[in-house]
């Protein structure tokens, strides 16, 4: 179970998250939708421990264990994975070596031995097939010179390799053409299982045609203002965010 309780975060004295709560049970897919500036991406950053947000308040628990005080790498090794909205370039660092480092970091965290390089290679090739990606992809530097779509697929490849418990997909659909969107969605559906928890952050509902959420939340002003089933996304598409503004006034 992944629980967020009354999460508050601010940057440069500006409040971005204002007491957000959310619970995802194993096997569930949740979607968060909201207009620009509602705090969606901040939520992704705060969950993964981005240093810009100092001392957020509230609780983030994974299977009962509080992870809010952990370092970003410790959270990752606990099983929290963020597919970045804008994956970062790391020039000169080989994509597959990077992945192997990450894989072995997790093994080490779990007191497991490092993976044999040959086993790693066959594992990664298997995952490449799922995403319909070429092997040449592996020898390129991490995200460097990648197209927008390639970057997003690379994020999903990493997700498949690291096999996390909790996945946050931050606007993974942006910058994807229809074919790529389909491949990425298929890979996520393939990944989905009884013990995975997936949080989709998106602006549009088109991704949700491919990955069907159990619950849809609407976010505004750093809070969830409305939750419902998948039909909420369609209503939203129809009526716009204004219809769901927090009735504060």
């Amino acid at each position: 179970m992944f629980e967020i309780k009354d999460l508050k975060a601010s940057i440069e004295e500006k409040d971005i998250l204002n007491g957000l709560s959310l619970t995802i049970k194993p096997g569930e897919i949740h979607a968060i939708m909201g207009p620009n500036g509602s705090g969606k991406s901040t939520l992704a950053k705060v969950i993964s421990g981005h240093p810009d947000f100092e001392d957020p308040e509230g609780d983030i628990k994974l299977d009962g264990k509080d992870i809010l005080d952990l370092e970003p790498d410790e959270r990752a090794n606990e099983g929290v994975f963020l597919a970045f909205q804008y994956p970062v370039d790391i020039p000169g660092v080989n994509n597959s070596e990077f992945l192997r480092m990450a894989y072995n970091a997790k093994q080490k965290y779990q007191n497991q031995p490092e993976i044999d390089p040959f086993d790693f290679e066959s594992l990664i090739k298997e995952k490449l097939t799922v995403l319909n990606m070429k092997e040449a992809f592996l020898s390129r530097p991490v995200n460097h010179g990648f197209s927008g779509g390639e970057k997003k697929r690379n994020e999903i490849l990493q997700m498949l390799m690291l096999d996390p418990r909790v996945v946050i997909l931050d606007e993974t659909d942006s910058g994807l053409d229809i074919d790529s969107l389909k491949q990425v969605s298929d890979a996520i559906n393939h990944f989905k299982s009884e013990n995975k928890m997936i949080l989709i952050i998106t602006h549009y509902q088109r991704l949700l045609n491919h990955i069907v959420p159990d619950t849809v939340h609407i976010m505004a002003d750093g809070k969830i203002t409305k939750s419902g089933d998948k039909s909420l996304a369609l209503t939203l598409e129809d009526q716009g965010y204004d219809a769901f503004k927090d009735n504060q006034s």
Partner: peptide
């Protein structure tokens, strides 16, 4: 070495010191 690069590596489970070494090594790869 940007904060974002370090955070990206960390989010993949790699410790800060290893992340730095990796990024510097990448810088020298050529």
């Amino acid at each position: 070495v940007s904060e974002e690069q370090l955070f990206y590596c960390q989010q993949r489970g790699i410790s800060l010191e290893d992340a730095l070494t990796t990024i510097v090594n990448g810088f020298c790869a050529d």
